[in-house]
Design a protein around this nucleic acid. Structure first.
Length: 288
DNA sequence: AAGACGAAAGTGGTTGA
DNA sequence: TCAACAACTTTCGTCTT
């Protein structure tokens, strides 16, 4: 996955940055509202769901000149003026378009502040479009639905982002994001599998700047743990944190429980409980 | 002195009557 | 609508390195 805004190639499994400094082949601008969009749009830009008309519309130049650069006669000028007016009306005429333009810019903002890869942004935009089409936004906050779309997009792509992070980036309370999230899932008939601990592990090890094999060991522990049916009914974060802790210890990279608890957003107690269970079971298996 | 440990009470969200 | 409930957190005193 390529993230042009951050000029990175990002692994969609774990969010790991594979390469930096790509050439940006997309448009060099971003549009936050329709006016700005009109100023910056040009032919040949790639299609994207993040702009309300998918970046596909034509636009009439504002200078009153013809293709040869000659000034237009006054009757031509008047005609062009009328054409422009109509085009404006056609493009952002109804509430639908206006809503979309606003919401997509909000979604872009959230995604950027979380430095999410481009395809998450596209997915979130697509989800939002569906929501609008089904008239699910009526009487609801655009921001809330936007934030929820981003969250769903993350979950669908298996990127470990918590409600907290989304709520922080969008400055909308966790409760509201969660509510809208469930609402969208229900109304759009989406199914989102619960987070796998595995996905958290990669996130943690990135944030902890641990070496690659710590992550590998942690994954192995998780596989073993889930085979032992130890993962059901438990919060995936706690399990992932515990696995990371054990893996770090095994590879001689000793992390304190607090350090892991900090970035995993669980308490040391939870890590302790999980990892004690795991150690017990794993040792038992190994002694067979 | 810092980290790890564990008991006990508290919290917020889900479930089932 | 409400109480029971499971998972997790908070708090705090004690043990270990």
């Amino acid at each position: 996955m390529q993230d042009y805004d951050a000029a990175e190639i990002v692994c969609m499994d774990c969010g790991f940055v594979v390469a930096l400094n790509l050439a940006n082949r997309g448009p060099e601008w971003r549009a936050f509202d329709h006016k700005e969009y009109e100023k910056k749009a040009r032919v040949g830009s790639p299609q994207t769901f993040t702009i309300h008309d998918k970046g596909l519309s034509t636009m009439i130049d504002w200078r009153n000149r013809d293709v040869y650069g000659k000034k237009l006669s006054s009757s031509q000028k008047a005609q062009i003026y009328r054409l422009r007016k109509w085009q404006r009306r056609v493009r952002i005429s109804d509430a639908y378009e206006r809503n979309l333009a606003l919401a997509l810019s909000k979604i872009t903002k959230i995604a950027n502040s979380l430095s999410l890869p481009r395809n998450i942004l596209e997915t979130a935009s697509l989800i939002y479009r569906k929501a609008v089409k089904k008239r699910l936004i009526r009487g609801r906050s655009v921001q809330e639905i936007g934030a929820a779309s981003v969250y769903i997009a993350c979950r669908q792509c298996g990127l470990a982002r918590t409600l907290d992070e989304i709520s922080l980036a969008s400055s909308i309370s966790k409760k509201k994001v969660g509510r809208s999230y469930r609402y969208l899932l229900k109304e759009l008939n989406y199914f989102v599998p619960p987070m796998k601990p595995r996905q958290y592990v990669s996130k943690f090890s990135n944030q902890l700047t641990m070496q690659g094999n710590v992550e590998k060991v942690a994954s192995k522990i998780l596989v073993a743990a889930s085979e032992l049916k130890m993962t059901c009914g438990r919060g995936p974060k706690g399990i992932a944190a515990a696995a990371s802790y054990i893996a770090a210890a095994l590879t001689g990279e000793q992390m304190t429980q607090r350090e892991i608890a900090e970035i995993a957003q669980v308490t040391e107690v939870t890590i302790r409980n999980r990892y004690k269970e795991m150690i017990k079971r794993l040792l038992f298996i190994m002694s067979l």
